[in-house]
Design a protein around this nucleic acid. Structure first.
Lengths: 173, 173
DNA sequence: GTAGGAGATGTTATAATATAACATTATTCC
DNA sequence: GGAATAATGTTATATTATAACATCTCCTAC
């Protein structure tokens, strides 16, 4: 089944190859969103769907105004609240994450599971990979517990170089 | 020696008691800054010193415009660049950290050591505690290494409830 | 089928955060 | 003291985000 295949390919590699068939990522993301909204009784309107699609237009987090600029080409009425309201909806459902250190938004690979975001962000190509590493959460949990701090939300954003850019770095720089 | 005593008190408790002698925190922070700047040949001007002092006016991260509002009472010429330039200087030296998830700035407890910030931030009282927990960095390092990602900078900001607010929560809420 | 209401979007204005660009002043170093 | 460098002053503007109210759409009950 095409959907399952594409979902697998999304989940598999943290930093997908540049040549990967990104249409499948988008397709899978939209399919997951449709199911999630149906299950939760939320309305995935054309606008929200389109904003999600734009967020998924690459693996690079997009700024709200980048999204707005594209949306404006298609929809004369688009304004900042248009985008922010759609993003808020998608954030609430866990369909996108906000990258605090970039003021940008990126699609979530597994919105079904409730999880805080852990992100590796490449400073060279700008792409972001989402992790869900138990060890990181456990380390934070332990450290917090020792102090008597009760964890509610984690923001973990690691900047560096992705495997692809590390390889090409030797060539260019 | 007063300085050493106050430095110890700062480093000791992640979330200091509300009744702690905060003047000592400020005094120690300014003393450390003076030493650090002398060692690095950087100029800790009156303005920069004052901005650092304001950042240290509590253990709660302050926004740039909060700092500006106070600075304006004392210095008619204060404007956004005044604050942002001072903050940039202090950030470069590691004397303050930026809390990405709050657009706010907080004093660093140990600017001598080069470290990424790990923060526990209380959603109730707003105070932030800086950690330097090896386990967290190691967990992130392992996870990144497995993917072939080279880590440059870590942003770790954990929101929740500090021990003091956890205690009083039962009383109020 | 239509009136009412809830939710979504449109529209205008503005708040909050941050930087660009150039002028002026202070400090250092010869 | 004067040139070079660093810091600050000053004005304007960019970037990110939200407030507030109007309108539209769609569902439901009748």
């Amino acid at each position: 089944m095409a959907l399952e295949k594409s979902m697998k390919s999304v989940d598999a590699g943290a930093f997908p190859e540049a040549e990967h068939d990104h249409k499948l990522c988008v397709k899978a993301a939209l399919a997951r969103a449709g199911i999630l909204c149906r299950d939760r009784g939320a309305r995935l309107t054309a606008l929200r769907r389109r904003v999600l699609e734009l967020v998924w237009s690459g693996h690079r987090p997009l700024g709200a105004y980048e999204i707005l600029d594209i949306l404006r080409l298609e929809r004369a009425s688009a304004a900042p609240p248009t985008v922010y309201r759609a993003l808020d909806f998608l954030l609430d459902l866990g369909l996108v994450h906000r990258i605090e250190s970039m003021n940008a938004y990126v699609g979530c690979c597994s919105p079904e599971t409730n999880h805080g975001g852990q992100f590796l962000i490449c400073g060279a190509c700008g792409s972001a990979a989402e992790l869900t590493d138990k060890r990181i959460d456990e380390a934070i949990g332990q450290s917090a517990a020792e102090i008597g701090f009760s964890v509610v939300r984690r923001t973990i954003e690691v900047e560096g170089l992705c495997p692809h850019c590390l390889k090409t770095e030797g060539v260019n720089g």
